[in-house]
Amino acid sequence: MKMDFWLNNVHREAEVQPDTLLLDLLRQMGCFSVKRGCETANCGLCTVLLEGRPVLSCSMLALRVQGKKVVTLEGMEKEAQEFGAFLAGEGAEQCGFCNPGFIMNVFAMLKELQDPDEEQIREYLAGNLCRCSGFVGQTRSILKYLRYKQDRKGEYRE
Rank of each mutant, 00 (worst) to 15 (best):
K2N: 11
D4H: 12
F5H: 01
L7R: 02
N8C: 11
R12A: 15
E13Y: 14
E15N: 08
E15P: 12
P18H: 06
D19W: 14
T20I: 12
L22R: 04
L22Y: 04
L22I: 08
L23R: 03
L25V: 10
L25C: 12
L26H: 10
M29F: 15
G30I: 10
C31Q: 14
V34D: 02
V34H: 05
K35M: 09
G37L: 01
G37A: 09
C38V: 10
A41V: 04
A41Y: 06
C43D: 01
C43V: 02
G44A: 03
L45N: 03
C46D: 00
T47Y: 13
V48H: 05
V48T: 05
L49P: 02
L49R: 13
G52A: 11
V55N: 01
C58P: 11
S59H: 01
M60Y: 08
M60G: 06
M60R: 05
L61P: 11
A62R: 00
L63I: 12
G67W: 09
G67S: 09
L73S: 06
G75Q: 08
G75A: 04
K78S: 14
E79R: 12
E79T: 11
Q81E: 13
F83R: 02
F83A: 05
F83D: 03
F83T: 06
F83V: 15
G84V: 06
A85Y: 02
F86Q: 07
F86D: 03
L87M: 14
L87K: 02
A88L: 10
G89L: 05
E90Y: 07
A92T: 08
G96L: 01
G96H: 03
G96N: 03
F97E: 05
F97S: 04
C98F: 00
P100N: 07
N105M: 14
N105F: 09
M109P: 02
K111T: 08
K111L: 09
E112Q: 13
D115C: 07
P116Q: 00
E118Q: 03
E119S: 10
E119A: 13
I121C: 09
E123Q: 09
L125N: 00
A126N: 12
N128K: 01
N128A: 06
L129W: 00
R131D: 01
S133Q: 12
S133C: 11
G134K: 04
F135R: 05
F135L: 11
F135C: 07
Q138F: 15
T139Q: 01
S141T: 03
I142K: 04
L143Y: 13
K144F: 12
Y145F: 14
Y145R: 02
L146K: 04
R147N: 13
R147P: 09
K149L: 14
R152A: 13
K153Y: 11
G154Q: 08
Y156R: 08
R157K: 11
R157H: 11
